[in-house]
């Protein structure tokens, strides 16, 4: 069991797992889950990381408690404000190093947050996910259009309602099956709370339009892309794509699907730990 703390902002409560290392000088690692998921989906990583780092794993609004989240609250700018509040609360000093790990939609948020924080972020790890600008750069890739068909369907309110209220179990099973999540994995017990962030797709679609003609900006934060090779939703990034957005970007492909941190947690944890330790030495 984990300690779950919260911040309150404009009447809305934002929960997060807070597992602190006994070392007060330990760097901070922020784990941002994807869709459909919640912060418990990181439990296999928290177990490993908590001995070395102070780990924070926020719950996207609505994924922990059964309450209706105003759609506006799921805009990227609002979520980033929540994350800022959390960071200000948990960070021991301005010099404490911060790393971000983002999976799926959590990667979109993580990358945007990292851009805002600038040099405070010492590294970012994407697990089957990427920044929104990088995703938009795939606008001419037909295979990515095919894989992302659901993102277009989620623009329609009745589809969102169908998924969240009428067929949550069916949708969750399909999502986890396509992602090659092991049958015994505990995230298969998730209920429709993990679907409460579905309006995120509507906001992200609008945010994406900003990047259609924008020249890519390059981050100097070191970035690692950890990818399950059989990702049914996102193409594996190639190095030319990564180089457009990151001065120091690495790609590692593992044998697995979209929830690579569940299906290959041993290998993922090993790589994450090794990467973070390398960044600790160089940052």
């Amino acid at each position: 069991m984990y300690c779950i703390d919260s911040i309150s902002r404009n009447g809305e409560v934002f929960h997060y797992i807070d597992v602190g290392s006994s070392n007060q000088n330990a760097s901070l690692v922020i784990l941002l889950h994807g869709f459909p998921d919640n912060a418990f989906g990181w439990n296999l990583q928290i177990t490993t990381l908590k001995d070395h780092f102070h780990v924070i794993a926020p719950f996207m609004p609505g994924t922990l408690n059964r309450h209706t989240v105003p759609s506006e609250r799921l805009k990227t700018e609002e979520l980033k404000k929540d994350l800022f509040e959390v960071l200000n609360k948990v960070r021991v000093s301005q010099t404490q190093r911060v790393y971000i790990l983002g999976h799926d939609l959590g990667a979109f948020l993580g990358e945007s947050f990292a851009k805002d924080l600038g040099q405070d972020i010492k590294g970012i790890i994407f697990l089957n996910g990427m920044g929104l600008e990088q995703f938009v750069s795939r606008k001419f890739k037909l295979t990515q259009w095919f894989k992302s068909y659901y993102a277009f369907l989620f623009q329609l309110a009745f589809v969102r309602a169908l998924v969240y209220e009428v067929l949550p179990d069916y949708f969750l099973k399909k999502a986890y099956d396509h992602s090659i999540v092991p049958l015994h994995d505990e995230i298969r017990n998730n209920d429709n709370r993990v679907l409460s962030t579905i309006p995120l797709y509507k906001h992200l679609f609008r945010d994406a339009l900003k990047f259609i003609r924008k020249k890519p900006g390059r981050l100097t934060i070191p970035a690692l892309f950890l990818w399950g090779k059989d990702d049914a939703f996102l193409n594996i990034p190639n190095l030319d794509e990564v180089d457009q957005f990151y001065a120091t970007g690495t790609v590692r492909v593992l044998d697995g699907g979209h929830w690579i941190m569940r299906s290959r947690f041993d290998q993922v944890n090993r790589i994450i730990l090794k990467t973070l330790n390398q960044w600790e030495k160089t940052s």
């Binding site: 594996i236 990034p237 190639n238 190095l239 030319d240 690495t250 790609v251 590692r252 492909v253």
Partner: peptide
């Protein structure tokens, strides 16, 4: 080939 299909460094 490895730029197009990166597996690991």
């Amino acid at each position: 080939v490895l730029r197009k299909f990166p597996v690991n460094p």
